[in-house]
Design a protein around this nucleic acid. Structure first.
Lengths: 242, 242
DNA sequence: TAGGTATAGTTGTCTATACCAGTATATATA
DNA sequence: TATATATACTGGTATAGACAACTATACCTA
């Protein structure tokens, strides 16, 4: 069961053990797992080590504790499709749709508006690329988006790669990884330009997502405003309580 | 500083101490806080107790550790106010607005529509309370919502408590804690009824949030559809890459 | 029978200690 | 001067033990 010689920490081994026993059905949803003292005796480790393992699984939502009663397996049905930070391309694929993109304009902006400077944490006089793109799902227009990308990070971005997934580009060309994003979601009515590109009547309902995405260092690498067709698109998100 | 007599756990007191010293600027973003051993000596507690406090702040994102170097204050102290699962009441308070509620109707449904049964994981013939409420911010209508609550969980819900925050009610009356929610966010146009309650013209832009909220056991305790005024409200969410 | 109580079990909190594994820095050595 | 090396820090892992707070159950008593 537990190997104290190898370099994998004991509490990690206990986590893996418990997870596998949940997954193979030994402990079912709602069941109590053995008490901390029982586990510490049967695995021949200290109770605090068992607690460390259980604490991690509790914060992952796999187990929950009840004081005086025991520790139990959560009801989780967390469907993976809902979770996490995904690009438009990934999002559509998860929904079983085929994404495509039409690049409307691709320009280098030398005079960047202040709000963009702030969101991208740029210094004055830094340039950005500005992409205006229509995004399709199964060849139907789904969204239009305006993306702002710092030139210093995307110096080797071509018009060609601007047709595809920016996240793909970052994965391939950057040394750092994508870490998190803050998103502001609003509802509104479509403008004339948006309506044309989306193939809807003017003043149709639209969902506006304004997103700043950050690398693992904490530096932002894109600010994107996406306008989705309101009748076609809904935004899914999982949130957790502290 | 630390009071070992009172019933607040020492590690919670240490958390509060560190947070307040971050907020009053004693430790700035990127600064190292004192080492675990220093804190354990100066506060006259065990190092493990200090670690418990720091661990909690790390998992809240307020601090981060670097092995061999120290523990540091995270960059994102401000935007964390945006994060997490919050009730309408909490949400408005964070935005600096005063929330209030008008209860339009409060009824017990014995025949529950199938979609609601599924979302709340009910068995057939289980009843739910159905609340229809208008939510105000600074006395201006901000949203209307329809909440579905299993009677078996909310048996002691009164019309009076239905006027206030449901999350508050759960905190006070339930033994379990609120853990997570899945939310579906859509854009649309207001119906006649919604327009009346929100004080807007019909076919105004609205933001629709459909939320199922779960307890730490994984059992859902509410399904709520909230219709926000599109010009007044925007939804903020942080997402992370796996 | 209804209600209180003892008891044994659970998780929660806290201590004191030990050693490991990275990191930075001063010091000694080539 | 450049490069090892010692050493003194840091957080990471793990132990053994103690008592508190809460829960369920069996048992006793009015």
């Amino acid at each position: 069961m537990i190997n104290k010689q190898i370099s994998i920490p004991i509490y990690v081994q206990i986590e893996q053990l418990l997870v596998s026993e949940i997954e193979n059905g030994k402990y079912q949803r709602g069941d109590a797992i053995p008490s901390e003292r029982e586990l510490s005796e049967s695995l021949e480790v200290s109770r605090m080590t068992v607690r460390q393992a259980i604490n991690n699984l509790v914060s992952k939502g796999k187990l929950y504790r009840e004081k005086g009663k025991g520790t139990f397996v959560s009801e989780q049905t967390l469907s993976y499709a809902l979770k996490g930070l995904v690009s438009f391309t990934e999002d559509m694929k998860r929904r079983g749709l085929v994404p495509s993109t039409k690049l409307i304009s691709f320009e280098k902006m030398n005079h960047v508006p202040d709000p963009i400077i702030n969101k991208l944490m740029l210094s004055k006089n830094e340039a950005v690329y500005c992409l205006y793109r229509v995004r399709y799902a199964d060849k139907e227009p789904m969204a239009v988006e305006r993306a702002y990308l710092p030139v210093k990070l995307f110096s080797n971005l071509s018009e060609d790669s601007a047709q595809g997934s920016l996240y793909e580009f970052v994965r391939n060309e950057f040394k750092e990884t994508i870490h998190r994003a803050t998103q502001q979601i609003e509802a509104g009515l479509s403008t004339e330009l948006e309506s044309q590109h989306l193939g809807v009547q003017q003043n149709s309902p639209i969902l506006i997502v304004k997103r700043t995405t950050y690398l693992s260092s904490g530096n932002p690498f894109e600010y994107v405003e996406t306008v989705f067709r309101g009748e076609k698109y809904s935004f899914l998100v999982d949130v957790f309580r502290d």
